[in-house]
Simulated assay, not measured.
Amino acid sequence: MPTPMDVQRLTNLLPPDEGWGEVVHLPRVGSTNAEAAARGVLWSPVITEHQTAGRGRLGRPWQDTPGASLAMSVVVPPVAPPGWLPLATGLAVRSALVDEGVDAHLKWPNDVLLPGDDGRKVCGILCQSQPDGRVVVGIGINVGHGRGDLPVETATSLRLVGAHVDRTTLAAAVLTHLRHLHTALAEGGERAAQVRADYSAACATLGRRVVVHHPDGTREEVETTGLDLDGCLRVIRAHGSDTVAAGDVQHIRLPGASSS
């Protein structure tokens, strides 16, 4: 089982004099996103040992095992275009995992996959815009789960690929990477272009055939060709080129190929 969260060490790694808010550590909470939104403090991470009512994209329940996950949320200023914030968050998680020696790929728009466990999902991300324009960024990473602890067959954990990661170190790394990427997106120009390039290089969705599951329940098979400046997925449909702004993608697995 993962080591307990060290709030004092995390506070030292995210010091107030560098613009970080209070580290809020809760033994149990319904939703870290809801808690962070209610507090409304920029760059003040809310972390819990047990999230009981977490939600993923499209309102899906996010299952949690007490003490096994890194479940946290943070309120950040908006960036333009807004579609790049969830993508950058996935890139932040991937960068933190690579720092720990864990190979990870991204699946558009905001999943993190582990090739070491057949491309299964280790992290989900939910960004929720607030009435004042700020955005709550929610991150859930499976750290210490065994196979039987996971809610679906397509999920994995860091433990299952042999990675023994300290959650305090991981939380600090994810948040630090997120802040750097957020700053680059807010600055725009060449720095934002580099974020887009880095995401594209790490995204296993691009340049392959996928099934897009649309929010209205329909689905279609398309070929992906890249991302546009808004973070939408460029695709080739039967009638020609188009973009997909929202939805889930399922990577089509070719015989003998990895599912990542």
Results as ranks from 00 to 15, higher is better:
Met1Asn: 12
Gln8Ile: 15
Leu10Lys: 02
Leu10Ala: 07
Pro16Val: 14
Glu18Gln: 15
Gly19Leu: 05
Trp20Asn: 01
Trp20Tyr: 02
Glu22His: 13
Val23Ile: 11
Val24Ala: 05
His25Ile: 08
His25Arg: 12
Pro27Asn: 01
Gly30Cys: 09
Ser31Cys: 05
Ser31Gly: 04
Asn33Ala: 10
Ala37Met: 12
Ala37Arg: 14
Ala37Thr: 03
Arg39Val: 09
Gly40Ala: 05
Ser44Pro: 04
Glu49Gln: 11
His50Asp: 13
Gly54Thr: 09
Arg55Gln: 09
Leu58Asn: 06
Arg60Met: 01
Arg60Cys: 01
Pro61Met: 01
Trp62Met: 02
Asp64Cys: 14
Asp64Lys: 05
Gly67Tyr: 08
Leu70Cys: 08
Ser73Gln: 07
Val74Phe: 07
Val76Asn: 12
Pro77Tyr: 03
Val79Asp: 11
Gly83Val: 02
Trp84Glu: 01
Leu85Asp: 00
Leu85Cys: 11
Pro86Ser: 03
Thr89Glu: 07
Ser95Arg: 15
Ala96Arg: 02
Val98Ile: 09
Glu100Trp: 03
Val102Gly: 10
Asp103Gly: 03
Ala104Asn: 07
Ala104Tyr: 07
Ala104Met: 00
His105Lys: 14
Lys107Phe: 06
Lys107Leu: 00
Trp108Val: 07
Asp111Cys: 09
Gly116Lys: 08
Gly119Lys: 02
Lys121Glu: 10
Cys123His: 01
Cys123Gln: 10
Ile125Val: 09
Cys127Gln: 03
Gln128Ile: 14
Val135Cys: 06
Gly140Ala: 02
Ile141Thr: 01
Gly144Lys: 12
Arg147Thr: 13
Gly148Ala: 11
Gly148Phe: 08
Leu150Phe: 11
Thr154Gln: 14
Arg159His: 11
Asp166Ser: 05
Ala171Cys: 11
Ala171Asn: 12
Thr176Pro: 02
Thr176Lys: 12
His180Trp: 13
His180Ser: 15
His182Gly: 03
Thr183Glu: 15
Thr183Val: 15
Glu187Leu: 13
Glu187Arg: 15
Ala193Met: 07
Ala193Gly: 04
Arg196Gly: 12
Cys203Leu: 01
Arg208Gly: 07
Arg209Val: 09
Val210Ile: 07
His213Tyr: 05
His214Asp: 13
Asp216His: 06
Thr218Gln: 12
Arg219Val: 09
Thr224Lys: 00
Thr225Met: 00
Gly226Ala: 03
Gly231Ala: 04
Leu233Val: 03
Ile236Thr: 15
Ile236Arg: 15
Ile236Lys: 14
Ile236Met: 14
Gly240Leu: 04
Val249Met: 04
Leu254His: 09
Pro255Trp: 06
Ala257His: 13
Ala257Pro: 06
Ala257Ser: 13
Ser258Asn: 11
Ser258Ile: 00
Ser260His: 12
